[in-house]
Each structure stands twice: as structure tokens, then as C-alpha cells.
Design a protein around this nucleic acid. Structure first.
Lengths: 325, 325
DNA sequence: CGAACCGAGGACAGAACCTGTCCTCATCGC
DNA sequence: GCGATGAGGACAGGTTCTGTCCTCGGTTCG
């Protein structure tokens, strides 16, 4: 029964919109008998969605957290918010949800109504540019690759090698791997006839889908490790060591443990070790702490700090002269 | 038929997972006849979901973008990614999707399976601390308020006034308004018996729901404007004017138009006007541009720039001595 | 061009299901 | 205890669904 299925979906959407609904209210809203509402609630329950109910004058039905996520029914604005949120997460990935965020974003992009696209692409650029300091990965490239992977389609894109050479690639994409905060594509290069690992941020064009291909056995079972091995360098561009002039207790409260390794260096000093892809972003975070610090490594960061210091001092103009003396 | 509804949902989920499915494959997967699959596809189509199909050896069904978003069926990791994404968006709101992101997050939190909660709260703190520089709004406070609004429940929380005085509040919450990058709650204060506008970032505890209340007529139809009026000051803490030593063309490419107003000041200079809640974040963004700039207003920003310059110079140590002379 | 594959959809019969109506019972708050 | 709410059994009539035919119209590849 089509009517029934649609009503179940509608019911689910109503229960997601407002926390609590009373049986008669639902019946009126959906133009059926209260008995039918009770039956529909029962159906949803047997489908695994936990709907609790309380009798009495202040009673009603409410959807709770179950074993698995019910289908999310979002309106236009909420869909847009989700899309923007996912874009932000893929642009500067959070440990542990990188690949899933790309999958979800691909899923959503595939079904996003056309009328929302202009708003989405407008906001997307704002988000990615804001998130840019740490990892300049274009989510559009990621979703294009992700779509090609599930469709098993060869993709074509321009790729810039480490030495700056740029060339056109035709590859069979197999997996996206998120190591640290950088994205890699494991693919079979159809021209060179071998497995290659590509850095997604070095793709210089949005990959365009081509002909279908039939799957090959993967070069390794644990692709995450395979990628790690195929990368010789540290996953980060810079490995920094910083000495902060404050106790470890204070620092711990202000720097998430996920980002940096902290070790105590006496009561009033803390050593911070962390990998970064950018010099500016960590420097600005450190400067904002209002704690004196000293860059022990790398040299490039010291140079950059001095550069930024100079620019800020000049930007401060008159007020800066106090310090410039 | 319960079976049928469940199958339709399952079918939708399969179509969201992989771009293309062939009829026989779906039939086998769902253990029904191909004829039934065709009928189910037809049902989904009459429900408004556009499913395109192509005949021939390389054919199959695929779900496209329709007039409205189909129910999103996410797996655990994807749900987590969406939750984290929304948290990031609410913590540092993007113009235009602020309120919707809170609604979506509330919706999701209500049904998020218990086994995902520990992972979620773990990642949440990392995200909010990273996003902190611009707006220290706790998404947990927002979702608590949002839930209370839809449930029509009085909430209790500690609130710190502008002058630093902190007191316990019991209010009927009505609407969350996102002006610029700050959140306000429009509510009826049950003790003072009047409408009040609260800054969400000044809530010093997570609002806890209390008794139900019956809705009052709102103090204004356009609540966004009402909030704007009830705030005397600019929505931002600082209104900055910056002179950048580069042409407007170059600057436009690097600073999103949504964030700042740009005006040309000759071929090699651009005036930037924008509101900020933090001094550090915009300063470091500007410094990272590798364009010389000059702070025209406000004075506080000049002072802060000089402070940061001093700290960075000292952090640079030896390398910094070149500039310190 | 023909073969193989895929989607579209009409017809039919039997079974299964759904809905509304009517009823009784349990629970909660006043 | 009363009113409002949820739970659920029983029943009848009508609708719908499914599987099994079948034909037709495309596409792709050899």
C-alpha cells in the first residue's frame, strides 16, 4: 500500500520535527483514525524505531534513540546546513570521520534538489576558504572521486607531481584514504599500468568520469597501511617542537589532546610536539594563547614567525612603534 | 503491508549507497521478483523520488535529484560525520544556515544511537575547541534550548550579565536568533515577567528542561529585527577598517565576499571593512595573506597586533633577531 | 543485422493486508 | 473519581500486493 508507506514516512518526519505528539493530533494531521495512528506507531516500532509513549493528560508519543539511525527527513535549510557542515569537515578533516564524511557528502550531493545547488555552491566556497589554512583539499574533488569509485568509472584529471611537473592522468579509482589530515587516492594508472597513490590536494582539476571498468584485486588488504608505506615522508609537512611558558595543566585545558602531544618541562614550562601542514595556522593559535612560547623546531617556522611578527608590527603602525624601538 | 514499506526504505537506502543498480541485482538483494522491484521503483517514483533508468547491457536504475530531499539513510560513521559537521557549523555559524543547523543537530541528537554518543562527545569537544577563536558558543547549549523550544518547556540556566553579574534564570524559550555570528535567545522571563533577549554564549550552564508552558503571543512578528533593536551595540565586538597593499582583484580572490566588504583604494590598495568578535583570528588571517596591511581602526586591534608581533618575535628567537634590531 | 540484456508495463488470480468501527483496559494528572 | 491518553482485540469490507505469465521498446556488442 503506497498510502501506508507514505504515511509512515510522514509520521516519522513529524516525530522528528517535534519532540512530542499526541495521538489525536497525529490523527488529525494525517487525516486518519486514531486507531490507524496507533497501528502505524506499532508498525514503526516493529521496524525497529523506538517510540516511547506516556498516557495521561500530558502524554504523547516521542521518538527516541534506537539501535540504528532512522531515515533523516530534512527540510531545505536543514539539508543545506548538513551539506555545509560536511563540506567543512571534509575540508579540514577530523580524525576518525574523514572517509565517512566524504561518503555522506557524496550521498547528499547526489540527491540535493536543484533549487538548493546555487545556495550550496555559494556557501561552499566561503566555508572552504575559511578552512583553507590547514589543508587545501577541495571537497568537490573528493566527492567526484568518491562518486567515481562507487560507480566504478575511470576518471581523468590533471595531477601535479611533487617536483611541480603536471600531467594528465587516466586512472581506475578504488579507495580514498584519509591519513592524518591529508587525502590520498589509491588507483590503478591505466597508462603506466600499475598501482599509484595520488595526493588529492595535488589534483589540479575536478576529476571527470569516463568509461566503466571492472574491478581488479586490490594491492593490499589494509589500504590505510599500504598508503602509509607508499609515503616516505611524514604525513605532515612540518613537525614542530614548541616550548610554552606555562604549566602543563594550564595548557591541557586550552589545546585539545587530539592535536598535539604535550609533555611537562618543569612547573612553568611545557613542550608541545605536533605535525602541521601549514606554518601560519599553528602560529596564530599559539600567539592567541597569551602564553609566551619559543619555537625550537623547525627553522622554517622560526623564520615564518619572524615574518609574521614584522608584518603585524608594521600593520599596527603608530601603536606598534612602542615595540619597534 | 509492513514488508512493503520496509522494502521501499531498503530500496531507497540501496540506491543512496551505490549510484547504479540493475533490476535483477536489486531483486536478488531483496529476495523478491524482478516484477516487484519494478513495481517498487514505480511506487518510489509516484512518491516523488526521481529514479532514472537506462536499458541495455550497461543499464540500471539510479536515484537523481528531485524536488525535495529523500529521507537520508546513513550508516554509523556517516551519521557521526554529519553530527560533527553540524557541530562545527553551529560553533562558528555560516551566514544563512545558523538556525537550520541547530534544528538539524537537535533532530539528529534526539535519535542518535547510544553506542555512537561516546564517540560523538569525544569528537565534539575537539571540534568546538578548534572553532573557538571566533565564537565560543557551546552547541550543546544551543541544542538544549532548541529542544526545549519545540517541547515548550521552561528552562533553567545560569546567566552572566554584561557587567559580569551571574544569576539563575527560569524562562520560557521561544526562538533562537542568529545575528551575524552570535546567538540570541528570545524568551519570557518568568521571574521578571517580561520578554528578555539572552546571549547564548553567556549561558554558564547547559539549560535543563522543566515544566511545560503554554505559548504566549510573541512580542514581535519579525523576531530577527526585534533582536537587532534590543541590542544597542553593533552585532560584532569590533568593527575593523584595514588598508591592504594590493589591488582589489587580488584580494577578492583570497577573501570571501561573505566575510568582508572590500572597496578599491587605487590600483595597489584595498580598503577592507568587517565586523569581528575576536581580534586575533582576523589579524592572523590577514598576516597569512602575505600582503602588507595597515590597521586604520580600531585602536584595540592595533594594540593587539603589536602584542602578537612581540610574542611572535620572541618565539622566533634567534631567527627573529634579524627583525628585532 | 541479430543476439543478449535491461527496463516498462498489462492481465489475472489468490492471498494478504489495511482501515474504520466498536469495545475494553491500563495509566497518569488533577 | 474523572478526563485524557495509550494499548490492543475482534470483525467485516474493500483494497492492495505479489508472483506468474506475457509483449514491447530500447541499448550495446559482436
Amino acid at each position: 500500500m503506497l498510502e501506508t508507506s507514505a504515511r509512515l514516512l510522514h509520521l516519522l518526519s513529524l516525530l522528528q520535527m517535534r519532540r512530542e505528539w499526541t495521538g489525536p493530533a497525529l490523527a488529525q494531521r494525517m487525516e486518519v483514525t486514531e486507531r490507524t495512528v496507533r497501528r502505524d506507531i506499532g508498525k514503526l516500532r516493529t521496524l525497529g524505531y523506538p517510540i516511547s509513549a506516556s498516557p495521561g493528560i500530558a502524554g504523547g508519543y516521542q521518538l527516541g534513540a534506537g539501535a540504528q539511525l532512522p531515515p533523516l527527513l530534512l527540510d531545505d535549510d536543514e539539508a543545506l546546513a548538513v551539506a555545509i557542515g560536511l563540506t567543512a569537515v571534509t575540508a579540514s578533516p577530523v580524525a576518525g570521520v574523514g572517509e565517512a564524511s566524504v561518503r555522506a557528502l557524496t550521498k547528499l550531493e547526489q540527491v540535493l534538489p536543484a533549487r538548493l545547488r546555487p545556495r550550496f555552491s555559494g556557501l561552499r566556497s566561503a566555508v572552504t576558504r575559511m578552512a583553507a589554512p590547514s589543508t587545501p583539499v577541495d571537497p568537490a574533488v573528493l566527492t567526484a572521486l568518491s562518486a567515481a569509485i562507487t560507480e566504478r568509472r575511470i576518471v581523468a584529471f590533471r595531477y601535479e607531481r611533487h617536483d611541480g611537473e603536471s600531467s594528465r592522468r587516466l586512472v581506475e579509482p578504488y579507495r580514498l584514504v584519509d591519513t592524518g589530515r591529508r587525502w590520498y587516492l589509491v588507483a590503478w594508472d591505466t597508462v603506466r599500468e600499475d598501482w599509484r597513490t595520488f595526493r588529492v590536494d595535488r589534483c589540479r582539476s575536478i576529476p571527470s568520469p569516463r568509461a566503466r571498468f571492472t574491478a581488479r584485486p586490490l594491492p593490499a588488504t589494509d589500504l590505510a597501511r599500504y598508503v602509509q608505506k607508499s609515503i616516505t615522508r611524514s604525513p605532515y609537512s612540518y613537525d614542530a617542537v614548541i616550548r610554552l611558558a606555562a604549566g602543563i595543566r594550564e595548557i591541557e585545558q586550552r589545546i585539545p589532546a587530539e592535536i598535539a602531544e604535550l609533555t611537562s618541562d618543569g612547573p612553568n614550562a611545557t613542550i608541545l610536539r605536533a605535525g602541521f601542514d601549514s606554518l601560519d595556522y599553528p602560529l596564530m593559535q599559539l600567539a592567541s594563547l597569551d602564553v609566551e612560547f619559543e619555537i625550537l623546531e623547525p627553522e622554517a617556522m622560526r623564520v615564518r614567525a619572524a615574518e609574521l611578527a614584522g608584518r603585524l608590527r608594521r600593520a599596527a603602525g603608530r601603536a606598534g612603534t612602542v615595540y619597534a624601538r
